[in-house]
Design a protein around this nucleic acid. Structure first.
Lengths: 229, 229
DNA sequence: GCAAAAGTGTTTGGTCTACACCCATGA
DNA sequence: TCATGGGTGTAGACCAAACACTTTTGC
């Protein structure tokens, strides 16, 4: 193969289709959940769960495609997202050759509850992920997304995208515990968070519990690299 | 937009072209280098440096496309690679709408010297990267790849892909120092590496220096997550 | 007054850092 | 014999982990 063989030839070089698939996490009540679609009637294997996703439309930007797909497949208007990996497999989708750009996304449970369309999307307890039937390689993508989420939780302030605007330290700790599936020491956790100077006290109180708890919010909106745990 | 609007329509959904671009790092003598192509005569801005890359051909797997492009653009037959990011920009390549899947790659200087075709590829001292003229957004991609490389060096045993099969600890330390652009303490470095149990003594000696130095190799071929620095 | 979650310090062990000299060989 | 890079240990600072009781409120 010489350099000349690489001369662009739009026909042999095109790929048939490009898709976006989104792994959406949320923490609802005290557990980590995943938002999954189910295959519709006219598809084979209709009972299987599948990541929200679709083929992209040319002429729109990636952002526009993402937002359309997100809204169409879940009802949700906005999530925090990061690109995860681009999968490529001629045999991946039996219907056609698809390259899939995957994202993982975080949504706080209040934002999620406002917008989600539960006729379109199912909320699945992450701890039951191995018990359900997931279409093709989407389970692999989910596990990869979870790894990335774990890492980002430990080393960045990304947790703010799962928490509501104002939250108690106990709530924040519970988010870490449910996602990382560990128990954390309350005093050490609070010391660590305090030392990072990433929160500000709102001086509001959460009175829903017995003893009212101080409500905090993030003092900074950028994604920061900070060793949290 | 309703669900019906998402019904696949292969014509409006196709994208024109998909490319692979590769950021290749090597450590040559005592510095970090980058392997870049230069735009050829018939292209505009022909003097600018550009990442080795090309449009993918359908019908081949991603691996095959990667290997073809790597070999065509650099002469090199094999590199260690990891996917970096997928860029999407209708205005990215003025010739057509391109989605680019980028990789970063590492190659040891001996493997590199065996195979590289220096008529195709230029080797650029990374510390001079800001002095040269780089095409379109490839500089951004390079900086992003360097960040990823720095991180991977600190937290994994990825350095083995830049080192020859057998190497001295001083050589290994020099690779860290040149890529991360820091000075490391010799004793602390050796203690840390020893504590990680990732090397084995080959009982061979490097006699090219005055006092012969012990030669080590990695005891394990998998990529491991280990806090190295 | 009691149940339930919030909030608060100290001690200990391990890890990271700084630092300087002797050794083996080639020329 | 001297120049060159290879190889080695210790002390102090800092950080992470373990651990239990008091406080505030609703009922």
């Amino acid at each position: 193969m010489t350099s000349n063989n690489l001369t662009p030839d739009i026909f042999s070089l095109s790929i048939p289709a490009l898709a976006i698939d989104i792994v959406i996490f949320t923490v609802y009540k005290w557990s980590l959940y995943l938002l999954l679609n189910q295959r519709t009637e006219d598809w084979p294997e209709k009972w299987k769960y599948i990541l929200p996703g679709w083929i992209v439309r040319s002429g729109l930007s990636l952002e526009e495609n993402f937002d359309n797909i997100l809204q169409n497949r879940t009802g949700i208007k906005w999530v925090y997202k990061e690109q995860l990996y681009t999968f490529w497999d001629v045999n991946r989708d039996p219907r056609w050759h698809v390259v899939s750009v995957t994202y993982y996304a975080l949504v706080s449970s209040d934002l999620f509850m406002q917008n989600v369309d539960l006729t379109k999307v199912h909320i699945i307890d992450y701890s039951r992920i191995d018990e359900i039937s997931i279409w093709y390689d989407h389970e692999k993508i989910i596990k990869y997304a979870k790894q990335r989420l774990d890492w980002k939780l430990e080393y960045t302030n990304i947790v703010k995208n799962i928490l509501p605007q104002e939250f108690t330290l106990s709530r924040m700790q519970a988010v870490y515990e449910s996602i990382l599936d560990t128990k954390l020491d309350k005093r050490n956790f609070r010391k660590k968070i305090a030392s990072l100077n990433i929160l500000k006290d709102t001086w509001n109180l959460d009175k829903s519990t017995n003893r009212p708890a101080a409500l905090y919010s993030f003092s900074d909106n950028e994604l920061k690299i900070v060793g949290i745990l």
